[in-house]
Simulated scan of single mutants.
Amino acid sequence: MKIFRFGALAAGSAFYLFATQQAAAQSRNCAPRDAVVSRLAQGYGESRQSMGLGSNNAVVEVFASAETGTWTITVTTPNGLTCLVASGQSFETLAEAAPIIDSDA
């Protein structure tokens, strides 16, 4: 009987964890990466402008449209779930050099 209780508790805990992760993902505007990239391209004309590796091996990407000026920042987890982090308008591409720091302060 103790094995059954432990199994039921473990299964219930796993279901609860899965359900709360799904609810969190939905509230953060998350979806499979292919769906997000397609929506950004078709709905806003945005394409990937830059990317980098964040904490926990998450891929951070910036999508933008030079025509409309809209931009979106996404984070994709290792399991392929992509979440929208921020979006806005007036995107500009910059190519700035790092500032030279003078040691004669």
Rank of each mutant, 00 (worst) to 15 (best):
A86F: 06
A25T: 00
D34P: 05
P32M: 00
P78M: 06
P32A: 10
F91Q: 01
F15R: 08
A23K: 08
P99A: 09
C30M: 00
E92M: 11
M1Y: 03
Y44E: 10
T20Q: 09
S27K: 07
A14I: 13
P32E: 11
A23F: 15
A86P: 00
W71H: 02
E96H: 04
S87F: 05
T74N: 04
A95Q: 15
V75N: 11
I73W: 05
D102N: 15
Q26S: 12
A24Y: 10
Q21C: 03
P99Q: 09
R5K: 12
T77P: 05
F15L: 13
E46T: 00
E67N: 13
V62A: 03
V36I: 15
G7W: 11
K2G: 07
T68C: 09
T70I: 05
V75W: 04
N56T: 01
S90V: 02
Q22F: 09
N29K: 08
L81Y: 01
R33V: 09
R39L: 00
A14N: 06
S27N: 10
M1E: 14
V75R: 14
I73H: 01
L9E: 03
V62D: 00
V59M: 10
S87A: 09
Q89H: 15
Q49Y: 03
M1R: 13
A41P: 05
S87P: 02
A8F: 13
L9N: 05
P32R: 04
S55F: 10
A8I: 02
V59P: 01
G52Q: 12
V59F: 06
I100F: 11
E61G: 04
S38Y: 06
R28A: 14
P78V: 06
Q21K: 03
G7H: 08
R48M: 10
T72L: 04
Q26K: 14
A97Y: 15
T70Y: 12
Q26R: 12
P99G: 09
F4I: 12
Y16D: 02
I73Y: 00
S55P: 09
A41Q: 13
P78G: 06
F6H: 09
V36P: 07
S65Y: 11
F15M: 13
Q49N: 07
L84D: 00
A24W: 06
C83A: 09
K2E: 15
L9I: 12
C83E: 10
A98Q: 11
G45Y: 11
I101L: 13
N56A: 14
A64W: 07
S55C: 00
T76Q: 07
Y16S: 15
V36L: 13
S47M: 03
N57R: 10
T74P: 05
E46V: 04
S38C: 01
S87I: 06
G69Y: 02
Q42Y: 10
I100N: 13
V62R: 01
A41M: 08
A41D: 05
A14Y: 14
T68D: 09
T72E: 05
L84F: 02
K2W: 07
V37C: 05
S27L: 04
V60T: 08
S90T: 04
F18E: 07
V62F: 01
S65P: 01
E92D: 12
R5E: 14
F91P: 02
S50Y: 01
T76P: 00
S38V: 01
A95C: 02
Q21G: 00
V60I: 14
P32Q: 07
D104K: 15
S103D: 15
E61D: 10
E96D: 11
